[in-house]
Design a protein around this nucleic acid. Structure first.
Lengths: 211, 211
DNA sequence: TCCAAATGTAATCGATGATTACTTCTAACA
DNA sequence: TGTTAGAAGTAATCATCGATTACATTTGGA
C-alpha cells in the first residue's frame, strides 16, 4: 500500500506538467499559463518544472508536440477508409481537422502559434505529413479525372489548407458570433467546406471523353 | 523656442504609447509587450501609461481599434472603383486585406486575437461593415447572374472570409515556409484567392437564358 | 492671480520566469 | 546488503512585470 503522503519524487512530473498546462490553456487561454501555476497544479515547488524543461517555451513546445501528435491522429482517422473518392477523403480530412480544433481548442491554439513554440523535429514531420496527404489526394483526383489535367495542385492544396485553417482559427479566435450569427459554428464550417469541395468537383471535372 | 529638455507633460502620450506598443509588437511580437517597456520607449515613468489606459488590456484594445480603423480603410480603398464587376471588387477586397496584413503584421495580429482585446464599439462596427460589404457584393453578383439564383450567399461570405483570414493568419503565424516552399507568399495568396473567385464565377454562373 | 483638474513621478505590492545552492530519494554496483 | 552517484525535488533569491497609491508639477480657466 503506497504511502498516502506525497512521495518526494512525483514519478511522471514531465507529463503531469504538460497536462496541467493544457488544463490552464483550456480554462484561461495560453497567455495565462505560468510555470508557477503549472507547478502548483502538479503539487510541486515553483522550481521543479525547470528540472524537466529548460524554459517556459520548452514546456509549451512539449505541449505543442503532444497536440500535433493528436491532431495528426485525428486527421489520419478521419481519412479512413482510404479506398473511396479522393475528394471525399479530402473533405473528411478537413472535417476531422475542424472537429478536432473544436473539441480541443487549447491544443489547437498552441499548435497554430509558431512564434510561440516554433516548428521543428517531430512537429514539423507531422505537419508535412498532413500536407503530403492532401497533395496526394488531389493528385489522385486528377488522375481519376475528377480534376482537370491542368488543375494547379499546389494552389489547390494551399487553398484547402487556408480555408480549413481559417475556419478553425476563426472559431478559436472567437470570430464566429460576428461572421455567422445563426446556427452553430460546426454546421457553418461543414457547409463552407462542402461548398468548396463541391466547387472543385464540379468545376474542375474533366469533360467526359468526346467520341 | 521650446525647452530642449523634455517638458513635464508629454503632450500626446496616449498616441505615443499606442505607437510604441505597435513598434514592440513588430519587433518582438504581442506577447512581449509590457507596459513598462512601452513607457520606456515613450520616455516616461512606468506608471504614466495608467493615466491614459486603465490596464494593459485597454492599451492593447486601443491599438486594436487603430488597427481596425486602418484595415477598414485599406479594404475600402481596395474595393474602389465600385462600378465594375462585383466579383472583381470582392477579389480586390481580399487582396487588399491580404496586402494590408502582410504590410502591417503587428496590426493584423492584434486585430485577430479577440481573446486578447475583445471586439466592441467602433471595432465591432468596422468589422460588421466589412462583412456587409462582402455580402452586398455577392448579392449583387447574384442579381447580375454571375451567381446562380440559389447560391448560398451566407455560406459564400463565410468561405471567402475564412479563406482570406486563413491565408493572412498563415502568413502571420509563420506557416508559409512549410505550406508553400517556393516563390513568395504574396504570389501564392494571390493565386489562391483568384482560384476561389474563379470557381465562384465559373461554377455558379447562371446558364444564359434559354429560348 | 490662483486654484482645481490633468498629467507625470516615486515608491510599493504580489506574481512571474529563471537561477542557484541545497536536500532527498532511487537504482545500480561491489 | 551497503554505498554512492546522480536524478529529481525544495528553498531562497533576482530582476521584471502589471497595478496601485501618495505625491509633485503643469496647465488653463474663473
Amino acid at each position: 500500500m503506497p504511502d498516502e503522503s506525497k512521495p518526494y519524487h512525483h514519478g511522471d512530473l514531465a507529463n503531469a506538467l504538460v497536462t496541467a498546462a493544457i488544463a490552464i490553456i483550456e480554462e484561461r487561454g495560453v497567455e495565462h499559463v505560468s510555470v508557477r501555476e503549472v507547478a502548483r497544479r502538479a503539487g510541486v515547488s515553483p522550481g521543479a518544472p525547470f528540472r524537466h524543461f529548460p524554459s517556459k517555451s520548452a514546456l509549451l513546445a512539449a505541449v505543442a508536440e503532444q497536440a500535433m501528435e493528436r491532431l495528426s491522429s485525428a486527421v489520419r482517422a478521419a481519412q479512413a477508409p482510404h479506398d473511396d473518392d479522393p475528394l471525399d477523403q479530402l473533405e473528411r480530412i478537413g472535417l476531422g481537422y475542424l472537429e478536432w480544433a473544436q473539441d480541443n481548442p487549447a491544443h489547437f491554439e498552441i499548435v497554430s502559434q509558431r512564434s510561440l513554440v516554433g516548428l521543428e523535429g517531430r512537429s514539423r514531420e507531422l505537419n508535412d505529413e498532413i500536407r503530403t496527404r492532401m497533395l496526394s489526394l488531389l493528385e489522385s483526383a486528377k488522375s481519376t479525372g475528377q480534376l482537370s489535367k491542368d488543375a494547379d495542385i499546389d494552389t489547390l492544396v494551399l487553398s484547402c489548407r487556408a480555408l480549413v485553417y481559417g475556419l478553425a482559427r476563426m472559431l478559436v479566435d472567437g470570430h464566429f458570433p460576428e461572421w455567422q450569427p445563426n446556427g452553430n459554428p460546426a454546421q457553418w464550417m461543414k457547409r463552407s467546406l462542402a461548398l468548396f469541395i463541391g466547387e472543385l468537383r464540379e468545376h474542375h471535372r474533366e469533360p467526359s471523353q468526346p467520341g
